[in-house]
Amino acid sequence: MGLVKLRKIAHARSGDKGDILNISLIPYDEKDYTILKENVTAHRVKEHFGDLLKGEVKRYDLDNIKAFNFVLYDALSGGVTQSLRLDKHGKTLSFLLLDMEVEI
């Protein structure tokens, strides 16, 4: 018990559409779904991404498959066709989310 990195208990995948990034968050053990639901709020994700993210975060809960979908707006400096970032798609950013610590 205590603080753990999300990477220890969950996996994630990034996808992009225009300037919008989405990141799934999926507990390895479905029993941890509730812990994630309580701890990994849209607000916390917004804070965790800091200046990288200009827009809001919306969380969708998929009780059916015990997974979350975070949608991050204005997240990619204009998106894959305009961004000057090294990772224009934001593909690496799933691991930024997994770097977040949660109390369990």
Binding site: R13, G15, K17, I20, N22, S24, I26, L62, I65, A67
Partner: peptide, 9 residues
């Protein structure tokens, strides 16, 4: 699961 949510809003 990962792919079901890939590029989904």
């Amino acid at each position: 699961k990962e792919q079901l949510l890939y590029e989904v809003h």
